[in-house]
């Protein structure tokens, strides 16, 4: 267990709060990219013995979540020429507050679940961080209006799930781990294509404009 493990998790949590408080798309995407890099480093830090598979998962995680997907999102952002997410459904300060309360609640919820002794000592922060990050992702998905920010919300949600997978990597085998990462990439890629179509059809990527379908 590396001594860098807990500091990295704390940085993931701080990035969550940063995303909730930021309105500029560039910073939101950048924060999610940093989180991706932190996840890759966490994968390495979570293991005493660095094996080939661990390195591979870490590299793919950094490559996809830290570099490739943010690049795609930056490109989409430039193509549609938007700078910031206007008027989120819930203001930035309230959503920051909800995020902070949610992080506290995650710690409490994680304590109600039984944890193996070997796991408890070394990976105590994993579960609360995972739950808090999933919560942040949901919050961004629900409150933001721009399609690109919603994709970032989905990305953060996936990051939270990835953190939970860190403690289970021996059980889940690396094949599944890599499959999950690739699936995520394809999903974001398809979303990118759709955003592009939306832009051409609607001249906007404000998901709130997508509202002709309702009862």
């Amino acid at each position: 267990m590396s001594h860098l493990f807990d500091p990295l998790l704390v940085s993931v949590l701080l990035l969550n709060l940063f995303v909730l408080g930021a309105s500029r798309l560039r910073s939101v995407i950048g924060a999610s990219a940093l989180q991706g890099v932190a996840l890759g480093l966490l994968t390495v830090a979570a293991h005493d013995h660095i094996t080939f598979t661990v390195t591979l998962v870490a590299l793919i995680a950094i490559g996809l979540k830290g570099v490739l997907i943010p690049k795609l999102l930056y490109k989409a952002m430039r193509d549609v020429a938007i700078v910031r997410d206007v008027e989120p459904l819930i203001g930035l300060i309230p959503s920051l507050a909800i995020g902070a309360v949610g992080t506290g609640a995650s710690v409490i919820f994680a304590r109600t679940l039984p944890v193996a002794d070997s796991y408890h000592a070394s990976l105590a922060l994993v579960l609360p961080s995972s739950f808090a990050t999933v919560l942040t992702g949901c919050l961004v998905l629900v409150t933001r209006r721009k399609a690109i920010t919603q994709v970032v919300g989905y990305l953060i949600l996936e990051n939270g799930i990835f953190i939970m997978g860190l403690g289970l990597i021996e059980a889940t085998t690396f094949l599944v781990e890599i499959g999950v990462l690739l699936d995520l990439f394809v999903a974001i890629f398809v979303m990118g294509i759709i955003i592009n179509h939306v832009r051409r059809e609607f001249e906007t990527t404000d998901a709130a404009e997508l509202s002709s379908l309702k009862e």
Binding site: E158, G160, M164, V190, M191, I194, S212
Partner: peptide, 27 residues
């Protein structure tokens, strides 16, 4: 397009939760 955006976003979040639940089961 609007329909497919909803499908992808809601569907992807659903599938993400399915993965989350699978990790709960592994736990």
């Amino acid at each position: 397009l609007e329909a497919v955006w909803k499908y992808l976003l809601i569907g992807s979040v659903g599938v993400a939760f399915a993965l989350f639940g699978s990790f709960f089961l592994a736990s």
